[in-house]
Amino acid sequence: MDFSVLLVEDDEHIRQALGLALGDEGFAVTDAVSGEAALELLSADGFDVVLLDLMLPGVDGLEVCRTLRAGGDLPIIIVTARTDAADVIAGLEAGADDYVTKPLVASVLAARIRALLRRTGTGRDDEVLRRGDLDIRPDVGTVHRDGVQVHLTSTEFRLLVELAAAAGRIVTREQLLRRVWGYDYFGDTRLLDVHIRRLRRKVERDPDDPTLIVTVRGSGYRMDR
C-alpha cells in the first residue's frame, strides 16, 4: 500500500522527522509549510489523506479544513499540540475525520491513516438498507432521502452504515470507535460525539430532536428499522 499523504506543518523539524518516519511506514509524503501552500497543492488531485496542523501562519488549519470539506471528502487527520476540548471539537466540526495530539509517533499515525482509508466491509452487494426515509447502499456508498442524494464523507458514511446494520440493536461507543476508526482506543469520545452530531445534521429532519439516530444514555446509539 502506497498511500499519498500531504503533511501540512509549519515546524520544519517536525515536518522532516514525521516525513522520514512516515516514509519508513510506506507512505509517499508531500510537505506543505502553510495553509496557502496546502490549498494550492490540494487543488491538484492525487492525495489520499491530509495531515493538518491546526496552528498555521496565514490561513489556519481550521480554515483549510473547512475549505477542503466544502470541496470534497478527502480524509483529514488533525495533528495538534493543543489538547483543549474546544480546539479538538472545533477541528472535528470543521470537517476533520480524526485527530491526533502531539507528540505522536509515526507508527500510530500510520495505523490511523490505514484505518481511515480502509474500504467499508459491511453489507452485501446490491443490498439497500432502508431506515426511516433513508435509502443506504453500502456497496456504492450512497445515501438517498426521498430520492435526493445526501452527501456524506466516507467516515460519516461508515458510521451510518454501522448504525444501520445493527438493525435496531444498541451499538456502544466503543464498538463504533473500533469499527469506524478501526483501532482500539478508548476514553476520548469527543471524536464520536462530533461525528454523530455532523451525521445528524445531514440525515435528520430536525437535528436537535433526532428520530433516526437515537442516543441511548450511558451506553451508545441505536438506529431503528
Binding site: H13, I14, A17, A21, D24, M55, T83, P103, L104, V105
Partner: peptide, 24 residues
C-alpha cells in the same frame, strides 16, 4: 500551561519520530 504544553510537544514530536527512524 497551554504555552508550555505547545512548546514542549513540538520538539518532542520531532524527537520521537526521529528516534523511531533511528530505531528502525
Amino acid at each position: 500551561a497551554g504555552d508550555v504544553s505547545h512548546e514542549l510537544r513540538s520538539p518532542l514530536t520531532t524527537m520521537v519520530n526521529a528516534a523511531e527512524v533511528l530505531h528502525r
